[in-house]
Design a protein around this nucleic acid. Structure first.
Length: 492
RNA sequence: CGAGAUGUAGCGCAGUUGGUAGCGCACUACGUUCGGGACGUAGGGGUCGCGUGUUCAAGUCACGUCAUCUCGACCA
């Protein structure tokens, strides 16, 4: 039952896993580590896609599609890149099945072995750069700004719904530029798009920053990230944007002739967000009653529940609802009238709360007589009675208010778990309580690794906004000098 | 791959010293209900993970095997 699940319970993971299933977002599939995203969950993902896609288009990015399979040889070209993914790749070795000679179903036909194995993409840099090589000849061909919406496969040892699954949906943008500065600017621009999306659409506060060299994407010169905090104080990397330098251009021999007739390697970026954002959304806002969806992403923004005893009452209320529904839809608000007549109102209230619908209207005989409607908001669980006439403009305003309130609540929750820390003894104790610790770091990989080994904490990012961190100090672990604080946390 | 646990109806579980396969939820039908997760009556649904063994008899005992979960290891 929904009442058993709570973000404050001892097992936050259990709460999360239960909520994913009970809110009808997704369920486990027959294949280990893979997930079925159900229509309600997918509708949220589609809204995310639509908003992001519009932002990408504004940045001049076009959608394209590249193959699922990558020849193994492509992977050998960028050494660092392959080292980062080799341990979690699904590999296709055969192209045919046959009837089992012993009559036990089907078996792989041993004669159908591929000459060169195919890798199911864990990310598409290699195949895209093999294609870009043919697209790029002149400085006039640049920049190339492509994005693809697709699935990727990473054979993870341990998986969790949305946060880490063997197969997941995402978008990956890949750009090619004629100068380092232009590419770097693109990487910064795209992490900005993600931050804007997280804050304004998902109502999710994030810190924008650089990854430390240890935590960088395999093959990148710089990785920018948006880091979010979940309600149990753990960090979640919600999106990344990489400046790839000329690494892939050199590995795949992608050169262009500049305006002075000289051959140059191109400069690259890649950036992506995945269905992990769904996990972030659930974990950041959910409460004891279930999911809380920000209006911008709610597939159903207003649900209407009729309360009746007789068919006449039912018909009268549904006709009132139809009028309100039409007016709301004219304002671009998505509405669901729950006219199922086998369920009682109380059950429906609980169910729609579980699914996170921002606003609920209920109307019964009393309201019918008085010309009123009961309105309940999901974020605060407050209920009140309003004049039915003109309710639509009130709701339009209310949805904006709810969106803001959900962000403010998440921000307050997050900020109450961010604090500065200047002593190693204190750090070891504080990090166990969860949240982010702002600490001085000497910039070396050795110190970072030592801290990780002793406490499991990693540098989530070296922030570029969201907090004032530039100040002189000494490294919390090594005591060496430091110019700025970085964000430490324990990650999902 | 290490450590622990669990596999019995769609889901969650019980099943005693080995002796006819059970309960709750869900589902179907009918009726009463309906302003915060309703109730009654009747019904349908099982290769007890799989295999071998012990036994007159195995959900139950033994051995093997497979799968899943939790914790590690692993993970942009």
């Amino acid at each position: 039952m929904a009442k058993e699940i709570t973000p404050r319970s001892e097992n936050y993971s259990q709460w999360y896993n239960d909520l994913v299933v009970k809110a009808d977002l997704a369920e486990q599939s027959a294949v280990r580590g893979c997930m079925v995203i159900k229509p309600y969950g997918y509708a949220i993902w589609e809204k995310m896609q639509a908003v992001l896609d519009a932002k990408f288009k504004k940045s001049g990015v076009q959608n394209a599609y590249f193959p699922l399979f990558i020849p193994k040889s492509f992977f050998s070209k960028e050494a660092e890149h392959v080292a980062g993914f080799a341990k979690e790749c699904a590999v296709v070795t055969h192209h045919r099945l046959m009837n089992d000679p012993e009559g036990k179903g089907v078996v792989v036909d041993p004669d159908a072995r591929l000459e060169e194995e195919l890798i199911v993409r864990p990310t598409s840099e290699t195949i895209i750069w093999s294609v870009y090589k043919n697209w790029i000849k002149s400085w006039r061909d640049l920049p190339i700004l492509c994005n693809q919406w697709c699935n990727v496969v990473r054979w993870e040892m341990r998986t969790r719904p949305f946060l880490r699954t063997a197969e997941f949906l995402w978008q990956e943008g890949h750009t090619a530029h004629s100068s380092a500065a232009e590419a770097q600017a693109k990487a910064v621009e795209m992490v900005g798009v993600y931050a804007d999306f997280a804050r304004n659409t998902m109502a999710l506060p994030v810190i924008v920053g650089h990854k430390s060299p240890n935590e960088r994407f395999a093959g990148a010169l710089d990785t920018l990230t948006i880091e979010a905090m979940m309600q149990d104080g753990k960090a979640l990397q919600a999106g990344t944007s990489h400046f790839l330098g000329q690494n892939f251009a050199k590995s795949f021999d992608v050169k262009y002739t500049d305006s002075e007739g000289k051959e140059q390697y191109v400069w690259a970026t890649s950036w992506g967000v995945s269905t992990r954002l769904m996990g972030a959304l659930i974990m950041a806002h959910g409460d004891d009653n279930g999911l809380v969806l920000p209006p911008e992403l709610a597939p159903i923004q207003v649900v209407m529940v009729p309360i009746y005893k007789t068919d006449e009452e039912r018909a009268a209320i549904l006709s009132k609802f139809a009028g309100i529904k039409q007016k709301l839809e004219e304002l671009g608000i998505s509405v669901k009238v729950d006219d199922r007549d086998t369920l009682r109102p109380g059950f429906k209230f609980a169910e729609w709360e579980l699914k996170g619908v921002p606003v609920r209207l209920a109307m019964g005989a009393r309201d019918l007589a008085a010309g009123t409607v009961e309105l309940a908001r999901r974020d605060t669980l407050e209920k009140g009675t309003h004049e039915a006439e003109g309710i639509e403009s009130y709701i339009q305003q209310l949805l904006r208010e709810i969106q803001q309130n959900i962000y403010d609540k998440a921000l307050a929750k997050r900020d109450s778990h961010i604090r500065k820390c200047d002593s190693w003894e204190e750090f070891k104790e504080e990090i166990k309580k969860g949240g982010f610790l702002l600490c001085h770091w000497d910039g070396t990989a050795e110190t970072e690794q030592a801290i990780k080994d002793e406490t499991k904490a990693t540098i989530r990012c070296i922030p570029v906004d969201s907090c004032v961190c530039e100040e002189e100090g000494v490294d919390i672990y090594s005591g060496k000098p430091s110019k700025a604080r970085v964000v430490f946390g324990i990650a999902y």
